[in-house]
Amino acid sequence: MKRTRCLVLLVMGLGLSQASSARLNVFACEPEWASLAKALGGELIAATSATTARQDPHRIEARPSLIAKVRRADLLVCNGAELEIGWLPMLQRQAGNRKVLPGQAGYFEAAEQVERLGIPEKVDRSMGDVHASGNPHVHLDPRRVLKIASALSERLMSLDPSNTGHYRSRLDDFTHHWQQALERWQRIAEPLKGARVVVYHQDWDYLFDWLQIVKAGSLEPKPGLPATAGHLAKLRQSLMEEPASAIVYTRYQNPKAAQRLSQLTGIAALELPYTVGGGEGVTDLFSLFDETLKRLLQVVP
């Protein structure tokens, strides 16, 4: 009897402590979306990212700590377009949190909000890591980020309607600053137009689409497969015929293949931040684009 009462008190205590923290608990799958959620929610949300800039968002394990986080989340903000298909569905199945299941208000997919590039006509695994719903790496096009921001803000308002005014003013603020930044970025990125750049993986397609950079090859022989010596030799051959300005890769990718090709061809190997936390001073989406452009402009004449 006494024990039952203790249990009841404990459960009530847990319930109360949850009620007192009125902030929306946001579980972002990637740092860029955690950053966007923070920008749009401010002090009304608590956002954590499941991954860091040093981790490959394709290859994450459905770890116990992540299940525990999804269990407590009010909103999942994920990339979607199958980027997290190797781990997110397992987290959702195991966490027993109905608020954040696909189709619910607590599940937001960024890529779903915008038009995607590279939707294949047919998908076959012999083609490597190809996503049927197109290239998922949408966050490196700032025009698309703006659309996603507005959709995410609406989602926050629908989940927390009593603070609609707060979210609206933060979105207006974000949009205003983003548009200013976008003009600036487009202005300074002018010299990048038509530049040829070799990539590691297809994560830069949206950035290149926006800046009109030409993809001069990929270190991966097929998406998701590691670089091989034979493939590097072929790349070198084609780069001899038509040179490129840079070989770009990011933190979660092994720099060796890029450095090797750089030695073979004399083309600069360049680490780009890719996401928030991916470089010195890259603390939000604004500095992500600032730094990316800065580094590209250093090697592109």
Binding site: P64, S65, A68, R72
Partner: peptide
């Protein structure tokens, strides 16, 4: 039947 606790540390 299984239950995951709403705790920082994963408990099932």
């Amino acid at each position: 039947v299984s239950w995951v606790a709403a705790t920082e540390t994963y408990l099932k």
